[in-house]
Design a protein around this nucleic acid. Structure first.
Lengths: 163, 163
DNA sequence: AGTTTGCTGACCCTTTTAGTCAAGAAGTCG
DNA sequence: CGACTTCTTGACTAAAAGGGTCAGCAAACT
């Protein structure tokens, strides 16, 4: 059962790039090409994306020999929503906030569907809002089996609250 | 704050068309052109959509003079999810079920993001699943101010459970 | 100076989505 | 039957969005 593309590739790339920067936090700036390699993203495309993302203030760049990109905030302070919202193209013309139609629909907010679209909207945003980059890092560590400490862990599966 | 297109136009049209048929249920078949007029959908395009939708079994058509489309089930028995799922093109190649990437991603289900994508997925599907065409009809009646009975109604706002 | 790395806008190509058309099949009416 | 209406269907075209590339420039380091 397939879903309509909730995620543009551009957005996915942006998210993965930030994720990668988070992984390497504290080790100085990371070159675009390194991020691209690590996350299998076309370099040229990533240039564009990272450059745009810089405008959000959550990452910054340094040029020259030891240059590269780096996070400006702790991974815990960056929510997936921050990235997703920022990456969205600024709405060109007025659009229908309720039903997500590209142009303002004739029915306005009085259409029978708006309540449902709003619920969908909220549901998605909620997930984005409550997920931080730190959460993703934690997830990653767990999946890679790189436990910080071999301390006993009662199973926390995906179902149970791992994210 | 804009969302990525959760809804294709084709899907929206399909939903609106079914909705319109539901509205006219019991009054005999409805012509494509009437549906198109009522819902502001390009006729030619709607032809294609309705024809496809017929394959789902939730609507059927009759040709000739008094012909048109009609629902085969009660609006209460049709969930938005039924329409959305059916309208999705069958996944061409294997795709990554977890992260919704078009092609199967190299990380498989072990990527740090899959848990999040799944949550998004489930959240959206849940809304689609718990919304029936009947719900939309009810919504519509309420918005149009066409209360069946002027009986007193304690406020049920969007928040409260109107959908 | 020369190298490394990011910056930036313009450009292009492919896929998807949206929409159109025309000829045909199946009913209805008289 | 013949005229008319309405769905049927596959092929076709147009437009937009998305994904990706490039070249030349601007900093920063050695």
């Amino acid at each position: 059962m397939r879903m309509t593309p909730i995620t543009l590739k551009k957005n996915q790339y942006a998210l993965r790039a930030v994720f990668e920067l988070a992984k390497r936090r504290g080790k100085g700036p990371t070159k675009i090409s390194d991020i691209a390699d690590a996350q299998s993203i076309p370099v040229r495309f990533l240039e564009v994306i990272l450059n745009k993302l810089k405008g959000s203030g959550m990452i910054d760049a340094k040029r020259g020999f030891y240059g590269g990109y780096y996070l400006t905030r702790a991974p815990k302070q960056i929510r997936v929503a921050d990235i997703m919202n920022f990456m969205q193209a600024p709405p060109k013309q007025e659009m229908c906030a309720a039903c997500l139609a590209k142009s303002k629909c004739p029915y306005g907010h009085r259409c029978a569907f708006s309540a449902m679209w709003n619920r969908v909207n909220r549901a998605v945003l909620q997930v984005y809002n409550e997920t931080t980059i730190q959460d993703l890092l934690d997830n990653d560590r767990q999946l890679q089996g790189k436990h910080r400490s071999p301390r006993k862990r009662h199973f926390k599966t995906q179902q149970g609250r791992s994210l």
